[in-house]
């Protein structure tokens, strides 16, 4: 058996091992590659920078643990920048598995690092079923949709909600989204109808689809996947959990490119031998 046949019949578990070690090694031995923020991440950062202290922001967190490594760093960095800007954060979710992840980020960043007070500086309204219907209802009355927060406490008396009951009182929507319902629906239902600016952080899988929204101005900023999160972290604080993973990400990509090239090299050589139809 020649080397081409051996490679063609390579057990897929060997490929699995190669990718496993390629991704694992940089976690132990970081390469320290530098990250340069792109225009989408820079615009995302600038949109939040333009806010004034006391402004109210709606943080729409629409994802679940399946996208945690990509999106949690975005959420954390966004909360960090919002806390630095001293704005009020009102968080809600259309994905049932998201509210505990939002709580985790609030506890860690808003409370832990910025000593922000729950109910005064930020609130987690939690999950609400209804997708696009909820998006529209929030434009009528936030209290109507969310009489209570994620822990069951009435939101009406919370200082963070004072003077805020619909999109008219919100300066910016920060959306972190893993799919449906998410960025696309926020743009379709809320951006067009209520003319409220939206910035979005989304999974890498869905990011290419949202470039037209960014170019058209329907999105004021866009973060795509772990790379987008890392670029944003660099802008907010110089580094962060996503930025630290970018070395592993880089090596993973190089291995995949290597596999594509190797697979095609064998295919090309076989074609020349005339053994491929």
């Amino acid at each position: 058996m020649d080397w081409k046949t051996r490679l063609e019949r390579l057990d897929r578990r060997i490929i699995f091992l190669v990718i496993f070690f390629a991704v694992l090694m940089p976690l132990f031995f970081p390469l320290g590659l530098s990250i340069t923020p792109g225009p989408e991440a820079t615009a995302f950062h600038a949109a939040i920078e333009a806010l004034q202290p006391g402004d109210a922001v709606y943080l729409a967190a629409d994802y679940d643990p399946g996208s945690l490594p990509e999106l949690q760093p975005m959420l954390e960095a966004a909360i960090e920048q919002l806390c630095k800007k001293d704005v009020r954060i009102i968080a809600g979710s259309l994905w049932p598995a998201c509210p505990p992840l939002v709580n985790r980020a609030f506890t860690q960043i808003a409370e832990g690092r910025f000593q922000k007070v729950y109910g005064t500086d930020y609130v987690n309204l939690g999950f609400k079923e209804g997708r696009e219907v909820v998006m529209n209802q929030l434009g009528q009355s936030i209290r109507g949709v969310y009489p209570v927060d994620s822990a069951g406490a009435p939101i009406g008396d919370m200082p963070v909600m004072s003077g805020v009951d619909s999109y008219a009182d919100i300066k910016l929507i920060v959306n972190v989204s893993a799919g449906y319902p998410g960025t696309k629906e926020w743009v379709q239902q809320v951006r067009s109808r209520y003319s409220i600016p939206i910035v979005a952080g989304c999974t890498a899988v869905s990011a290419p689809e949202y470039f037209p929204y960014f170019q058209s101005g329907q999105l004021s900023g866009l973060l795509g996947g772990l790379a987008g999160a890392a670029e944003y972290e660099v802008l907010v604080s110089g580094s962060g959990p996503a930025a630290k993973k970018m070395d592993a990400q880089s090596l993973g990509h190089i291995v995949i490119i290597g596999f594509i090239l190797l697979g095609n090299l064998i295919y090309f050589l076989r074609s020349r031998e005339g053994s491929v139809a």
Binding site: I15, F16, I19, I256, I260, L262, G263, N264
Partner: peptide, 13 residues
């Protein structure tokens, strides 16, 4: 991630 690596090698012609 593992299956996309395997597919890159075997199916991306």
């Amino acid at each position: 991630a593992f299956y996309i690596a395997s597919a890159a090698f075997r199916a991306f012609r």
